[in-house]
């Protein structure tokens, strides 16, 4: 019985149905089978026959999968709009996170100044925070976003095409867009600069791409060979 439900879960997820609906579907079917089994046992059927009849009444994996997959309104966003989910959304998220940390840094500077920090202390602290945040957003952030993208694709059993394109675009944009922040000090104004262009960053691009596509590929291959190994 578990094998059938596991097959069904993979079929339904592979058909683009959202994980929440898929998990709930399987849970309801399990519960339904328990009720059918109780009914068949009450009718005096031996356990093996009762289980066979219960599964027959429930419907076979093909019928159950097709009935769910046909409901387009229950499909995950990533299945209905894969370009938006795997290519556009990660870039928007990357931009938002960068904008957020810059805004947070500016707010920190203003708050510290209002709190009466000495300009030299303020410059030292905010300078450290700014350079750390810039380094993270220039190096680790695109990789982190790539892992989230890949994780979503694997969990949703999405075909590899759009996620792979998303990872390539994310690595390219992550390497091409470099942020640097100079905090104001001793009357000199602060500076926020954004450089674009892959020249000089091909190595970063290749590294980011390998750091995201390699685990994605390995997990996908492993899942293909072994199934998920987890219940919905």
């Amino acid at each position: 019985m578990s094998r059938e439900f596991e097959q069904l879960r993979e079929r339904v997820l592979g058909g683009g149905i959202g994980r929440t609906h898929a998990a709930r579907y399987i849970a309801e079917l399990r519960d339904h089978v328990e009720d059918l089994l109780a009914e068949e046992r009450e009718a005096g059927r031996p356990p093996k026959e009762a289980l066979a009849r219960a599964m027959q009444r429930l419907g076979d994996v093909d019928a159950l999968a097709e009935a769910m997959i046909a409901r387009r309104e229950l499909q995950a966003w990533s299945a209905r709009a894969p370009v938006a989910a795997f290519v556009v959304a990660p870039l928007v998220m990357l931009g938002l996170v960068i904008a957020l940390w810059i805004a947070a840094l500016a707010a920190l500077c203003v708050a510290a100044r209002h709190a009466g920090w000495a300009p030299s202390d303020l410059a030292r602290w905010t300078g450290r925070v700014a350079s750390g945040a810039a380094r993270l957003s220039n190096t680790s952030l695109p990789v982190l976003m790539g892992w989230i993208l890949a994780g979503t694709a694997v969990r949703q059993r999405a075909p590899a095409g759009w996620p792979m394109l998303g990872l390539v675009v994310l690595a390219a944009v992550g390497a091409a867009v470099q942020v640097s922040v100079t905090v104001p000090f001793a009357g000199a104004p602060g500076e926020l600069s954004l450089s674009t262009g892959l020249a000089g960053y091909w190595g970063r691009f290749a590294l980011d791409l390998a750091a995201t596509t390699a685990p994605y590929g390995l997990v996908s291959v492993w899942r293909g060979a072994h199934g998920s190994g987890r219940e919905a």
């Binding site: 079917l29 019928a63 409901r71 229950l74």
Partner: peptide, 16 residues
Amino acid sequence: LAEGVIYPLLHALERG
């Protein structure tokens, strides 16, 4: 009914 296929309908009606 093939009994299990009621659930996609229920999910869809709830979604709607």
